[in-house]
């Protein structure tokens, strides 16, 4: 079963890459941006058919490796 996870920087953590992307987009005439934050997206095919269990496995992965909880949040976003 495929589970996706999105890792984003927490609100108060500086995201210089997001700032540069924001600036570049503005220079390209996208003038209607408040803020850009860059994150990571994972698609994990888990050997588990129970959606609840599969989600729990990916959540455990997020806590232990995929996200650093000092600076990042994770969100399990979809099940296919």
């Amino acid at each position: 079963m495929k589970i996706s996870a999105i890792i984003t920087l927490k609100k108060d953590v500086l995201d210089p890459q997001g700032k540069v992307i924001h600036q570049t987009l503005e220079d390209m005439n996208f003038k209607n941006i408040n803020e850009v934050r860059q994150g990571k997206y994972f698609e994990i095919d888990v050997k588990e058919n129970d959606p609840k269990k599969a989600k729990e496995i990916v959540e455990d992965m997020c806590k232990k490796l995929l996200a650093n909880l000092v600076i990042e949040n994770y969100k399990i976003i979809e099940i296919q």
Partner: peptide, 16 residues
Amino acid sequence: VESGLVPGVLLRNKYL
């Protein structure tokens, strides 16, 4: 820091 032996994290340099 990633192994939790010292607190905090090291982010990308401020001016990239």
